[in-house]
Design a protein around this nucleic acid. Structure first.
Lengths: 210, 210
DNA sequence: GTCTATATAACGATAGAC
DNA sequence: GTCTATCGTTATATAGAC
């Protein structure tokens, strides 16, 4: 950016990792993880290949660092919020899905999810990490809320782990679908998100007393 | 196989296309569409590369023929069933999701969906075909049922196209998830499918009269 | 002997190596 | 930056069915 012309490089220990990660995710998303060469990442980030290895162990590590940054750090935040929450459990789905919608709109989570879902089958390390830290943990958060609501009598009795999929998967699929097939009217998020929240609240609601 | 040593090939016009398609899908699923060489498909199917081109226009056509065979032909069957159906609309979701579950268990639809979702981003022809003929049409079938139920008063008023995603996407994601990450207890289909049908019926149900 | 399903071999674009 | 190997695709030759 602001480096003088004769200077070949600058020491920018603080900014490098983030720049490399972002360049990597952009390329992974455009061309696929397997098809992206570390050399392209280096070029896009304005560093040499060796510099990448200074901060990351491997190409896989470079992807998983993005998972940590984009997904897991937000799980931390959400879990903190949930542990402090003391309002009605019945309001949590709306609150949580609102936050998820915001993450989908404002971060690269959709691209990241698409890349991982596309290539995890061919990279066991990616599949293992994502399964344990994103799929299981993400579903676990939703299942926990459902279980709390059942206990408090605000939600009907159901299998929390199974029902968590009914709550979460449409959102993931809508988001990945738009990345894969382009924006199409059928998947319009402005219509889908409110509709889905409605659907979820009815699907979870306790039966009214007779 | 059982052909004599000196015989170089046999004339089997009828069986070839199906054998080639199946070999192709198996390899696409194992190694990915882009990574699979037509030569491997030819070998697996027991023919030469050129023979593939007798029956299919291109590698992409070979995948799309599988989409036709596995997905679209079943859409035809389902649409026929729906047009003949004259029971309660409220029973259709259970009926339909049961059929979908059966297709997921007994056909290669899950592998096919995973392959397409994984690689459509890099192959516009695949994305276009699948979007128009599977995504839009599949959601349209569900949306049609929902619209019929709203009209008959059996379902609550909602946006059919948006709600169709809440109905269908969890199933697709559950199925693709198990193919991508392996069978894990959280995604157990024996628990998920019944739970999801329950969730859907409640999500669609008309409000009870006060 | 004729027709055609199938194989062999060559072409050309593209991408990866040095 | 050039060279080469790879792979989708196509042209030509041949073997099997009737």
């Amino acid at each position: 950016m602001s480096q003088s012309a004769e200077q070949k490089w600058q020491r920018r220990k603080e900014e490098r990792p983030a720049e490399i990660m972002e360049a990597a995710l952009t390329l992974f998303s455009e061309k696929g993880f397997a098809a992206t060469r570390l050399e392209d990442v280096a070029e896009a980030a304005g560093v040499s290949k060796a510099t990448i290895y200074l901060y990351f162990d491997s190409k896989i590590d470079l992807l998983l660092a993005n998972v940590q940054e984009i997904a897991l750090s937000r799980f931390d935040e959400i879990e903190t919020m949930l542990s402090l929450y003391d309002g009605k459990i019945a309001d949590l789905p709306t609150l949580l899905l609102g936050r998820v919608s915001e993450i989908a709109r404002t971060t690269k989570m959709p691209d990241l999810a698409r890349v991982v879902m596309s290539e995890a089958h061919n990279f066991p390390e990616i599949a293992d990490f994502y399964r344990d830290n994103v799929v299981k943990r993400g579903l676990g958060i939703i299942a926990g809320i459902i279980a709390r609501g059942i206990e408090s009598g605000e939600f009907r009795k159901c299998d929390p782990a199974a029902t968590a999929q009914s709550v979460m998967f449409p959102i993931i699929m809508n988001v990945i679908g738009r990345k894969t097939f382009g924006e199409i009217p059928e998947l319009d998020p402005m219509k889908f998100f409110p509709s889905h929240i409605d659907f979820v609240l009815r699907g979870l609601a306790a039966d009214k007393e007779a």
